[in-house]
Amino acid sequence: MAKTPAASTPDAAAEQPSGPGKNRPTPTRAEQEAARKRPLVGDSKEARKRARSELAAQREKARIGMAAGEERYLPLRDKGPQRRFVRDFVDGGWHLGELVMPLMVVVILLSLVPNTAVTFYAFVGLWVYILFVIGDMIITSVRVKKAAREQFGETRVEKGLGWYAAMRSIQMRFMRLPKPQVRRGGRPI
Protein backbone atom coordinates (compact mmCIF):
# COMPACT_ATOMS: atom_id res chain seq x y z
CA MET A 1 0.00 0.00 0.00
CA ALA A 2 1.22 3.45 -0.86
CA LYS A 3 0.86 6.40 1.47
CA THR A 4 -0.75 9.52 0.21
CA PRO A 5 1.33 12.67 0.52
CA ALA A 6 -1.27 14.49 2.72
CA ALA A 7 -1.44 11.70 5.28
CA SER A 8 2.31 11.31 5.46
CA THR A 9 3.01 14.70 7.06
CA PRO A 10 2.42 15.09 10.81
CA ASP A 11 0.58 18.48 10.38
CA ALA A 12 -1.99 16.96 8.06
CA ALA A 13 -2.73 14.19 10.53
CA ALA A 14 -3.41 16.73 13.26
CA GLU A 15 -5.97 18.58 11.12
CA GLN A 16 -8.03 15.49 10.32
CA PRO A 17 -10.81 14.67 12.81
CA SER A 18 -9.74 11.79 14.99
CA GLY A 19 -12.71 11.39 17.29
CA PRO A 20 -15.45 13.23 19.15
CA GLY A 21 -14.41 16.79 19.84
CA LYS A 22 -14.14 20.09 18.12
CA ASN A 23 -10.64 19.47 16.70
CA ARG A 24 -9.79 23.16 16.59
CA PRO A 25 -8.32 25.60 19.08
CA THR A 26 -10.64 27.52 21.40
CA PRO A 27 -10.99 31.12 20.22
CA THR A 28 -9.73 33.78 22.57
CA ARG A 29 -12.13 36.17 24.29
CA ALA A 30 -10.98 39.02 22.03
CA GLU A 31 -11.76 36.90 18.95
CA GLN A 32 -15.23 35.99 20.29
CA GLU A 33 -16.07 39.59 21.11
CA ALA A 34 -14.85 40.74 17.69
CA ALA A 35 -17.05 38.11 16.02
CA ARG A 36 -20.14 39.38 17.90
CA LYS A 37 -19.63 43.00 16.99
CA ARG A 38 -21.73 44.29 14.16
CA PRO A 39 -22.78 47.74 13.12
CA LEU A 40 -25.99 49.08 14.60
CA VAL A 41 -28.90 49.46 12.23
CA GLY A 42 -29.76 53.14 11.82
CA ASP A 43 -26.93 54.43 13.97
CA SER A 44 -27.41 58.04 12.95
CA LYS A 45 -29.27 60.56 15.13
CA GLU A 46 -31.90 61.08 12.44
CA ALA A 47 -32.57 57.34 12.18
CA ARG A 48 -32.95 57.01 15.96
CA LYS A 49 -35.24 60.03 16.07
CA ARG A 50 -37.33 58.65 13.21
CA ALA A 51 -37.58 55.23 14.88
CA ARG A 52 -38.60 56.86 18.16
CA SER A 53 -41.30 58.93 16.47
CA GLU A 54 -42.60 55.87 14.58
CA LEU A 55 -42.80 53.92 17.84
CA ALA A 56 -44.62 56.81 19.52
CA ALA A 57 -47.09 56.95 16.62
CA GLN A 58 -47.73 53.20 16.88
CA ARG A 59 -48.29 53.45 20.63
CA GLU A 60 -50.69 56.36 20.19
CA LYS A 61 -52.62 54.43 17.55
CA ALA A 62 -52.82 51.42 19.87
CA ARG A 63 -53.94 53.60 22.80
CA ILE A 64 -56.70 55.20 20.73
CA GLY A 65 -57.72 51.80 19.34
CA MET A 66 -57.91 50.31 22.81
CA ALA A 67 -59.94 53.22 24.15
CA ALA A 68 -62.33 52.84 21.21
CA GLY A 69 -62.66 49.11 21.87
CA GLU A 70 -61.09 47.88 18.62
CA GLU A 71 -60.59 44.15 19.03
CA ARG A 72 -57.00 43.92 17.77
CA TYR A 73 -55.72 46.52 20.27
CA LEU A 74 -57.42 45.05 23.34
CA PRO A 75 -55.52 43.00 25.90
CA LEU A 76 -56.45 39.33 26.11
CA ARG A 77 -58.72 39.77 29.13
CA ASP A 78 -60.97 42.19 27.15
CA LYS A 79 -61.15 40.35 23.81
CA GLY A 80 -64.16 38.57 22.46
CA PRO A 81 -67.87 39.17 21.87
CA GLN A 82 -68.85 37.99 25.35
CA ARG A 83 -66.51 40.43 27.07
CA ARG A 84 -67.85 43.21 24.85
CA PHE A 85 -71.39 42.20 25.84
CA VAL A 86 -70.44 42.35 29.53
CA ARG A 87 -68.76 45.75 29.13
CA ASP A 88 -71.84 47.15 27.41
CA PHE A 89 -74.12 45.57 30.02
CA VAL A 90 -72.19 47.16 32.90
CA ASP A 91 -71.72 50.50 31.16
CA GLY A 92 -75.45 50.76 30.50
CA GLY A 93 -76.34 50.99 34.18
CA TRP A 94 -75.60 52.84 37.39
CA HIS A 95 -73.50 51.12 40.04
CA LEU A 96 -72.72 52.00 43.64
CA GLY A 97 -69.04 51.11 43.21
CA GLU A 98 -68.46 54.10 40.96
CA LEU A 99 -68.75 56.42 43.95
CA VAL A 100 -66.41 54.58 46.35
CA MET A 101 -63.33 56.66 45.54
CA PRO A 102 -65.04 60.06 45.87
CA LEU A 103 -66.66 58.89 49.10
CA MET A 104 -63.27 57.84 50.46
CA VAL A 105 -61.89 61.30 49.75
CA VAL A 106 -64.82 62.81 51.67
CA VAL A 107 -64.17 60.46 54.60
CA ILE A 108 -60.48 61.40 54.62
CA LEU A 109 -61.44 65.08 54.73
CA LEU A 110 -63.94 64.39 57.52
CA SER A 111 -61.26 62.55 59.48
CA LEU A 112 -59.36 65.84 59.68
CA VAL A 113 -62.18 67.36 61.71
CA PRO A 114 -61.13 67.45 65.38
CA ASN A 115 -64.47 65.98 66.51
CA THR A 116 -64.03 62.21 67.04
CA ALA A 117 -67.76 61.52 66.62
CA VAL A 118 -67.69 62.93 63.07
CA THR A 119 -64.67 60.78 62.22
CA PHE A 120 -66.24 57.67 63.75
CA TYR A 121 -69.54 58.03 61.91
CA ALA A 122 -67.76 58.86 58.66
CA PHE A 123 -65.84 55.59 58.81
CA VAL A 124 -68.92 53.61 59.86
CA GLY A 125 -70.84 55.14 56.96
CA LEU A 126 -68.02 54.25 54.57
CA TRP A 127 -67.99 50.61 55.69
CA VAL A 128 -71.76 50.36 55.40
CA TYR A 129 -71.55 51.82 51.89
CA ILE A 130 -68.81 49.30 51.00
CA LEU A 131 -71.13 46.47 52.10
CA PHE A 132 -73.79 47.84 49.76
CA VAL A 133 -71.18 48.01 46.97
CA ILE A 134 -70.29 44.35 47.52
CA GLY A 135 -73.99 43.48 47.33
CA ASP A 136 -74.30 45.46 44.10
CA MET A 137 -71.28 43.64 42.67
CA ILE A 138 -72.83 40.26 43.48
CA ILE A 139 -76.16 41.24 41.94
CA THR A 140 -74.42 42.61 38.82
CA SER A 141 -72.43 39.40 38.49
CA VAL A 142 -75.53 37.22 38.68
CA ARG A 143 -77.44 39.40 36.21
CA VAL A 144 -74.56 39.42 33.72
CA LYS A 145 -74.17 35.64 33.83
CA LYS A 146 -77.91 35.17 33.28
CA ALA A 147 -77.97 37.64 30.38
CA ALA A 148 -74.88 36.02 28.81
CA ARG A 149 -76.48 32.57 29.03
CA GLU A 150 -79.56 33.92 27.27
CA GLN A 151 -77.49 35.72 24.63
CA PHE A 152 -74.80 33.11 23.86
CA GLY A 153 -76.28 29.82 25.05
CA GLU A 154 -75.80 27.80 28.22
CA THR A 155 -72.75 25.84 27.04
CA ARG A 156 -70.88 28.64 25.25
CA VAL A 157 -70.58 31.09 28.15
CA GLU A 158 -66.97 31.89 29.08
CA LYS A 159 -65.74 31.57 32.63
CA GLY A 160 -65.06 34.72 34.61
CA LEU A 161 -67.74 36.96 33.11
CA GLY A 162 -69.28 37.69 36.51
CA TRP A 163 -65.95 38.73 38.03
CA TYR A 164 -65.16 40.82 34.94
CA ALA A 165 -68.49 42.62 35.30
CA ALA A 166 -68.05 43.16 39.03
CA MET A 167 -64.58 44.65 38.60
CA ARG A 168 -65.74 46.95 35.82
CA SER A 169 -68.71 48.11 37.92
CA ILE A 170 -66.47 49.52 40.68
CA GLN A 171 -64.41 51.65 38.30
CA MET A 172 -65.46 55.23 37.79
CA ARG A 173 -67.06 55.48 34.37
CA PHE A 174 -64.63 58.00 32.89
CA MET A 175 -61.63 55.85 33.93
CA ARG A 176 -62.79 52.61 32.32
CA LEU A 177 -60.76 51.10 29.50
CA PRO A 178 -61.96 50.35 26.88
CA LYS A 179 -64.14 53.44 27.08
CA PRO A 180 -67.90 52.86 27.47
CA GLN A 181 -69.58 52.35 24.09
CA VAL A 182 -73.20 52.63 25.33
CA ARG A 183 -74.95 55.41 27.20
CA ARG A 184 -76.39 54.95 30.65
CA GLY A 185 -79.73 53.28 30.32
CA GLY A 186 -78.67 51.68 27.03
CA ARG A 187 -78.50 47.97 26.54
CA PRO A 188 -75.79 45.82 24.98
CA ILE A 189 -76.00 45.18 21.27
Rank of each mutant, 00 (worst) to 15 (best):
R173D: 03
E154Y: 08
E150N: 10
I139S: 14
R72Q: 13
M172F: 14
E54Y: 06
Q151N: 05
F85Y: 11
A166C: 02
G125A: 05
P180M: 06
V124R: 03
Y129I: 01
A117W: 12
K159C: 10
V86C: 10
T116V: 12
K146H: 15
V106D: 07
L126T: 04
R38Q: 10
P180F: 07
L109N: 04
K145D: 15
R156Q: 12
G153K: 00
L96P: 05
Y121A: 03
V90P: 01
M66S: 12
A148Q: 05
A47C: 05
V41G: 06
Y121K: 00
L96E: 03
E154A: 13
Q82N: 07
A57G: 09
N115L: 11
V142F: 07
K146I: 15
R72I: 11
V124I: 10
F123I: 05
A147F: 08
R77S: 13
M101F: 13
R63I: 08
R156G: 04
R36P: 04
F132H: 08
A62L: 06
L99Q: 13
R50H: 09
K37W: 09
E98G: 12
A56T: 11
R173L: 02
S111I: 02
V107K: 00
Y73P: 01
A148S: 09
V144D: 02
I64E: 12
L112S: 05
D78W: 01
L103Q: 07
Y121L: 12
L103F: 14
R59V: 07
S169D: 03
A165K: 00
L126Q: 04
R38D: 07
A147Q: 00
D43M: 09
L55Y: 08
F85H: 04
E154F: 08
